[in-house]
Design a binder for these strands. Sequence first.
DNA 1: TCTTCTGTTGAAAAAGATTTCAAAAAAATC
DNA 2: GATTTTTTTGAAATCTTTTTCAACAGAAGA
Lengths: 351, 351
Amino acid sequence: MKSRDRSANVYRKPTMSDVARLAEVGVMTVSRVLNGTAKVTDATRARVERAIEQLNYSPNELARVFRGQRSHSIGLILPYLYDTFFATCAHAVITVAREHGYSVILTTSNEDPETEVAEARSMLQRCVEGVVVIPTYARSSRLARTSFGRTPVVAFDRPSSDASIDTVLVQNTAGARRMVEHLIEHGHKRIAFMGISRSLFTINARFLGYRRALQDAGLDENSFFGCDSDTSTREALDAMMRNGNPPTAILTSSTLATRYVLGSIAHLGLHVPADLALAGFDDFELAEFTAPPLTVVRQPVQEMGRVATNLLFDRIARGETPQSGSRIVLPVEIVLRRSCGCKHRTPVVMQ
Amino acid sequence: MKSRDRSANVYRKPTMSDVARLAEVGVMTVSRVLNGTAKVTDATRARVERAIEQLNYSPNELARVFRGQRSHSIGLILPYLYDTFFATCAHAVITVAREHGYSVILTTSNEDPETEVAEARSMLQRCVEGVVVIPTYARSSRLARTSFGRTPVVAFDRPSSDASIDTVLVQNTAGARRMVEHLIEHGHKRIAFMGISRSLFTINARFLGYRRALQDAGLDENSFFGCDSDTSTREALDAMMRNGNPPTAILTSSTLATRYVLGSIAHLGLHVPADLALAGFDDFELAEFTAPPLTVVRQPVQEMGRVATNLLFDRIARGETPQSGSRIVLPVEIVLRRSCGCKHRTPVVMQ
DNA sequence: TCTTCTGTTGAAAAAGATTTCAAAAAAATC
DNA sequence: GATTTTTTTGAAATCTTTTTCAACAGAAGA
């Protein structure tokens, strides 16, 4: 019998019917008091509220959602979290979600397409109402609009391989191009590009902007220098500088590459910008305090997360899943400090 | 009628009974095929699997959990996420959770005790099996063991005001003390401490260590200098240095304080360590590339997150909620670079 | 052939909330 | 006071899955 099980000595969270029994009303009345969906006499309401208080009852959200309500949760899939860039994205997403009264289930794909798909699947099974995702390297990501059924998905920072997914990006190519043009204005003719790997969408896009700027200026087209660790960076830079015709400036592809290059430059004892000018893609808090302060292309990181999440909530609210994904591209800024050769005492922001 | 509703033109995720109907078996058989809980004939299994395939069915995890299974999810509450420290913690928690096959629901408290309690409540309503939390400033946090019922909770980085909650911390006081002792060994007699706010547990603990070291050395006891913004830091530092007897070294309380102080030092045109030696609490990736490289107390950030999460899973597995919380304190390291006056070319790690 | 046994299968109940619909109570009308 | 109308309340069905238990079929043994 129900009542027998209930009286057993195992701890069990109080349910709505426990409240109803104590308040000597039907469960429906309790539900009404909780949700305010219909009129309840003040006397009855008071009894119910007292019972809720007494039992320290709180509704089981799972049951509620399960009954067909909205789950008020969205999923967020990022490659990693220890990277400031991704963490800032996550912060933006969580903040917007909270503004809408939503929780966020957050997981990392570790850049593994298998994990990414598995996590997406797991989220759908948990009835998230939408998913925001930074896809793994675009080429390998297997996320497809179709596998999400009616659940909206928004990709950002990198596009998904499935073009029908809504996407929010920044001007990677244009930003890199603009930065290289600035280096050229400083008189540099041999400019190198150092990046983690061209297989990353953003890095490849920046590389293309870099190459475009060189071509437009009629300069030697340089190629991509990989730097995916302290060691490999040091070796690459060393080889580069021992070359008969070494570069006089470097554009790094991302914060991580910048860090590797800064380390290698310190190790080789080079002076910036006298020996080698430097510009990075992606600003970071301490860029002002490196030696010398670093010139960078600044991405609107928070903005990108916010825009992507708002787009998701827009889709959720409208309940529509458009046939072709929209693509939003956000502008970037150039922050001129001193590593490029500028003499500014304080940073100058362009555009 | 059921079947009428089902055939309506509204999209609905396929359910187990849809599969059962298509495969012409009972729902129970479908369940058995999915979970492998009992023998099913090869022929039947094949039919069911084909139906699952055809409908692209995947089980509703919520219903499953709701039926009384474990939710395989834990909650994580952090003050913020855009801080590298917290992001790294989150990464560690998510990684350990995944190792256990668990999802993480992540929210931020924004250092607001109200939000913290609300988010914790929301997580419990979503049936998380445990919660890992970095409480808001210990004094204001209203998290109590009792409000979690049987659900295990582990606090880390800062203790909860409720001592019965399991807690994982680092040696804040001992680390700061050790660092100040090192500065004293360099011959400094007037050492200042700059921090965001003493109301933060960690910062206060570090301040106490700092004070203790000064007392032990029989030096003037200095007091706390607040620096909670670029402006206030600049003013505080300016006043400090104009004083007749300015400090010759500063210990900063955290990465954020370090950043403010670095900015102010640059602004005032001071030379480190000649004019002013510097040491920080909490290491960060670019500490090696500031001018000069920064000496810091390094906390085992990932380790702390891992230990806390493992402790949580331990509690979950044992199903016990001990009367008194255990307290684990992890050791810190001193990383000597050059801002303290050391001449090392490469960092030296102590302890 | 009839019983017994094993191995598969399905029907019904359960989990905790909400929705629908009808009943009961109260208020309003004549 | 009887009837209608409105307000307040509760019982039963429902959401999707798993658990329990019973039924059924086929095989083995008598």
